[in-house]
Write a protein that binds this DNA or RNA. Structure first.
Length: 369
DNA sequence: CGAAAATTGGCGCTCGCGTC
DNA sequence: GACGCGAGCGCCAATTTTCG
């Protein structure tokens, strides 16, 4: 369960195996791109859109209708978990540090960078593209329906599409898996069939490759802007003797939604470290849970960066963050990371498996319970 | 062992802006 | 309008690690 079971707070596994086809990547990319780029507007489609089976088309149409929502629910909305916690975060802790004289609700502050509210969606909803792009696509889709004419997107359109998709993807994660990128590419050509690529087996292989390049470039940009989740994996933050791109790339595990959040606005490692030091004193006081909770909330990003970057031993971590090791704070921390309530999740799973557990327990001899 | 994936440097292209 | 310059972008290749 969660990140606290191991005796060592290890960083997440460095790479996730892709489930993609097992052929040479560069060859595949070249093939997909070459099949995609040199195409003229109005070219008769080499790929027959009617090859879909009825069942598949029904499914795609159904998904399409869900996918293309006019105003996608933004992951930037305030997480419900944190809304619930806002009462706690309104507790004044003005006395704790000059560096945080005024305590504000960090997550409702318009200046703070919003945390993620959910993991990768079951169905990826396409974002709204810029108005001129939507118009262009709309027209091209109509032409596709009427005559099967595919659109050869110019650089501007392609960049706008990739920009919007990357922005939407990054709301969920900066390191999407191969399957997830494929899902996005599939959603794109499913919603905008005029963007299908002739000669491509899937119709979206080139888009998938372009999206991967886009995301790599996007991560570069984020790194320059100081995004901690990406900055941690740059060469400058790796051991001198292990200064290679692929070494120890740290990515969130499956359930980790707020894996490596940015510091609250106006805060730095130094100011949050001061709050941590105050926490060491406050943890000894009685009837102080609400203040502790607010301070723990505020120092969440600091704690996460420490765990990811330094992978400390549990014992050392407990010494630095004693307030974390109580039921209330552990569940709160779990919720901050995963956005899932630990106890309710545990009990719902327990309910789901209770009949099996009863059977196992019934078969066992000896004293039970 | 090979496929997949990461960062980085670099190349060619486009675009916006300032200057003439 | 032509030109030069810099920034940004898409893409590629190199290199290395990770994992099945």
């Amino acid at each position: 369960m969660g990140p606290f079971v191991s005796s060592h707070i290890a960083p997440p596994s460095t790479t996730h195996p892709a489930d993609g086809p097992s052929c040479d990547r560069s060859e595949l990319q070249k093939a997909e791109l070459s099949s995609y780029t040199p195409r003229s507007l109005g070219h008769a489609p080499e790929w027959d859109c009617t090859r879909h089976t009825g069942a598949r088309r029904c499914r795609e149409e159904s998904v399409h209708s869900q996918r293309h929502r006019p105003f996608p629910e933004s992951a930037t909305s305030l997480p419900s978990t944190l809304k619930q916690g806002s009462k706690l975060s309104q507790v004044s802790i003005s006395r704790i540090s000059p560096a945080c004289v005024i305590f504000t609700d960090i997550l409702s502050s318009p200046e703070s960078i919003p945390s993620r509210s959910s993991g990768w969606p079951v169905v990826f909803f396409l974002p709204r593209f810029p108005y001129d792009c939507e118009l262009q696509l709309d027209r091209a889709n109509t032409a596709f329906k009427e005559s099967g004419t595919l659109l050869n997107p110019d650089m501007r359109l392609k960049t706008a599409i990739l920009d919007s998709l990357a922005e939407e993807i990054v709301k969920y994660k900066v390191y999407p898996s191969d399957n997830e990128v494929e899902e996005v590419a599939e959603a794109l050509v499913s919603s905008h069939p005029c963007l299908k690529e002739p000669g491509s087996a899937t119709g979206y292989g080139g888009w998938k490759v372009s999206l991967k390049y886009k995301l790599a470039n996007y991560r570069r940009k984020l790194k320059r802007l100081g995004c901690p989740e990406v900055e941690l994996n740059s060469l400058t933050n790796k051991p001198v003797d292990k200064c290679t791109p692929a070494y120890g790339v740290k990515k969130p595990r499956r359930a980790q939604v707020n894996y490596c959040p940015t510091y609250p606005s106006g805060e730095s490692a130094e100011t949050l470290e001061k709050i941590r030091e105050n926490l060491l004193l406050d943890v000894r006081k009685r009837n102080n849970e609400d203040t502790l909770a607010a301070m723990m909330e505020k120092t969440f990003a600091h704690r996460r960066q420490e765990v990811i970057r330094d992978a400390p031993l549990i014992a050392d971590y407990k010494t630095r963050w004693p307030a974390l090791f109580c039921v209330r704070e552990l569940t709160a921390e779990f919720k901050r990371i995963t956005t899932v309530s630990l106890l309710s999740k545990f009990f719902s799973k327990l309910d789901a498996h209770s009949s099996k557990l009863m059977r196992v327990s019934g078969k066992k001899g000896g004293v039970q319970g």
